[in-house]
Design a protein around this nucleic acid. Structure first.
Lengths: 198, 198
DNA sequence: CGTCAACTTGACACCATGTCAAATTATCGG
DNA sequence: CCGATAATTTGACATGGTGTCAAGTTGACG
């Protein structure tokens, strides 16, 4: 009963991630996912009430698999604010490609589905929280640009690290992930750090 | 004959811009626009074959009204590269709010309509061209950061000035237009200019 | 072997876009 | 001012995806 239900649920979630990753996420239909999971479209609706909730569940499922907190451990352990900033950027930048397919699908639904909007906003708020921590560490070291409040610096970093910026640089500009990481790290330092950096 | 057709056409385009500006652009339906223009939905299709082409035509109509080239004149006339960069940013930043409603509608169609995608890409390519000119002026003055190629610098500036970044800062972060302009100018200078700036 | 849950099949409502045909109303040239 | 014709209206319909509903089928487990 519950055993089988859970199996099917996981199979659906995995199929969702697979389908989103291969092909345009925003054009992936519920029927495509059901087919990939080997069940009927209606059966999928027995597990997830709407497309939006399926996507949200898939996001959480992915979270559970990748364990972003572990990647952020290095950032939190950094001795200096500058190290913390770099480590945070490195960790988050490495995660963007992983969450991008489902993120793109979620972003595409933002205008039509309030739940999807809230779910995505929530995840991004978590990223902002990480940005704020890095900025606070910088401020503690006295390395933050004097004319920036912590809040404004956080907004700036959050924007620089947004998925849209990653998309623009890697997709529209054709940058490699390595180039993205190097340049966005540099740009973030340039934007936030007081002059006379290392 | 052609007189009336033209009148109606303009009325539709104006109604389109009005509707997009008031209310979520991506949720604006063809029937909403037709109603605002005072004609039937089917009559609208007599003038514009698809929603995408209507939006594209509205973009061109808006262009014709605002004359972006005039705003860029100051930028082109700048004596130094740094002045040119600042003037370009100021001009473009001032235009983003104007084109944003229709731009947002166009961006929302990118995944479903290749024509809309191409039209928006085209406009953004024009912005990139402006970025490239500013970067070239900077390079000519020897003010470009040594470790950046002109191409990469252009990509960076183009990204910083993207509509998505403007949306993020003004909508998600709640920044005023003035704050956006000031901070994005600063960030662009920090990202592109060689140290020891004015 | 019977029961209950999971699943299937097939039909349908909804909503926005886009198409079509027939009827009606403006508009313009003569 | 009238007749041709262009512009518009009304109403019906196709398409494609989401979400719902009902009735029938399969399969596991006590």
């Amino acid at each position: 009963m519950s055993r089988k239900t859970e199996q099917t649920r996981v199979r659906i979630l995995q199929a969702t991630l697979d389908q989103l990753a291969s092909g345009s996420p925003e054009k992936t239909r519920v029927s495509d996912i059901a087919k990939a999971a080997g069940i009927s479209r209606q059966a999928l609706y027995l597990h997830f009430p709407t497309r939006a909730e399926l996507l949200i569940a898939a996001t959480k499922y992915l979270d559970a698999q990748v364990d972003i907190d572990a990647s952020l451990a290095e950032s939190r352990a950094a001795a200096t604010g500058e190290d913390r900033l770099s480590a945070f950027i490195r960790a988050w930048a490495g995660h963007i490609p992983v969450i991008h397919p489902v993120g793109r699908a979620l972003m595409a639904m933002q205008d039509s589905d309030p739940e999807a909007r809230a779910a995505w906003a929530d995840r991004m708020a978590a990223v902002r929280h990480g940005c704020a921590a890095a900025v606070a560490a910088l401020a503690r070291d006295g390395r933050l640009r004097a004319d920036l409040t912590e809040e404004r610096a956080t907004d700036l970093l959050w924007t620089l690290l947004s998925v849209r910026v990653w998309e623009h640089l890697t997709r529209d500009c054709g940058w490699s992930q390595a180039a993205y990481l190097a340049e966005i790290t540099r740009a973030s330092r340039a934007a936030l750090l007081a002059p006379a950096a290392s």
